[in-house]
Nucleic acid binder design. Sequence first.
DNA 1: GACTTGCATTCTGGATCCAGTATCCGAAAT
DNA 2: ATTTCGGATACTGGATCCAGAATGCAAGTC
Lengths: 257, 257
Amino acid sequence: MTAQERSGGDVAAPGTTADPESALARLAGRHAAGYRSVGVMAYDIIREAILDGTLPPGHKLRQETLAELIGVSRLPVRSALIQLESDGLVEFHDRRGAVVKSLSVDQAREVYQLRILLETEALRQSMSDMGDERLARLRRLGRTADEEQEGAGFVDARTEFYAELYDAARRPIQWELIEELRLKVGRYMLGWRLVGDGTHQHSHDELTDAVAAGEVEPAVALLRHHLEVVRDGVLEMLEAEASEGGAAATRRRRARS
Amino acid sequence: MTAQERSGGDVAAPGTTADPESALARLAGRHAAGYRSVGVMAYDIIREAILDGTLPPGHKLRQETLAELIGVSRLPVRSALIQLESDGLVEFHDRRGAVVKSLSVDQAREVYQLRILLETEALRQSMSDMGDERLARLRRLGRTADEEQEGAGFVDARTEFYAELYDAARRPIQWELIEELRLKVGRYMLGWRLVGDGTHQHSHDELTDAVAAGEVEPAVALLRHHLEVVRDGVLEMLEAEASEGGAAATRRRRARS
DNA sequence: GACTTGCATTCTGGATCCAGTATCCGAAAT
DNA sequence: ATTTCGGATACTGGATCCAGAATGCAAGTC
């Protein structure tokens, strides 16, 4: 019972989400199974909680609360937070703890600009060296990605698909950069998808077809278009959130450093 | 691997030769001045030690040794190592500690491929929105970068120059990615520069001229060529090191002044 | 009644301490 | 003599403990 009523007055004021505590506890339960080190478990749990919206942007991350929620000491939590800072998901305010980093509209635009640049190039290079067995894997993964609907599995399936599409094994650094960018917008992506109309459900399959046919420019065009559609959705959502959420943010007397 | 470390140079025997120990101790001295947190100090020290070659690739990083060398506890060292892992400079081997990550020839080639892609694009965008005062700063920084010769200042000056050239302030994420890539090859860059013939000493100035004239494609060509030259130098060095140093350098420590 | 200042609470960052495990060396057996 | 098994060593990862700093509250004063 150490978590007082502060949750009502401090951070969780915008009542859209049920309190992060219980949701995060469930996450911790799912992840409870064997991990080699609790540090990476804490990292995975917090990371997933941020990505699926359990911990919304701006949320203050108290080390002790997270620690007892996950069931470990504060130390692995700190390790996890440091990693997440390098990932660009959380932000440290000197001596005042960490908060979930939020993305400005400009930053989101920048991310998609970079993703288009990097991923179209990755696709070109990947297609210049495409074998049969990679193609088969790609088709299987694409189908799975199109089928998976719910949160965690959906993200994982998509990730595997793109890892294969961009030949992550042979271009690890390129893939690392792309993953970094995808991570930054991951939390907003999911939110967008919930309100999406499903028009682009089968984009993976289409893309795979073009790749299988060896038609580079059409495939690149498809990919670019897909990214642009997602970008527009995310930007729209962010802009709405910025104008409407501005009042709430002001209500919280959060001073910036 | 690195049998020499365990044989005695690592654990005890202080003041043997000009080992990483003493060099790192000097670094720690330079950095001793006021830091808000010792964690970031440890990070800076170890990072710099890796980049300037004091801690060569493959070197085993014992937490306790680093801790007492820097003069802090093991905990901030761990924090620093975690951050450096995210930066791609060190590598953790489960339960067996961390080592300085080395770059394969393929990975180096990939890095430069990505740098050319990202940095030429960054230059194009930056030049489409170039003001007078940015140009002035750029010229000043470029001159400084061409003048600075010795290690630390050289790297810093170059970084500032490119930060201005690519308009890091207005495109923070793009700059972040570029920095990440530069970091990965930073350690090898320096080694290459020591044997460089100085032909490209004034590359910053030339580039600034083209940028000032507003000639986009010539400027991009200059930048690309510069990167290609550096890439070839680094790759050449890495290949030589891989073939000749493979057997000898593993067990025999590399003497560095 | 409002503002300022001082004190108490709380939370982060750091240090020390403890347990688990991987490596290394030696001894014994084949 | 070589190989394998067991114990000792030592290092990493985690937990608990401690100090410093920032925030919030309250009391006193203008």
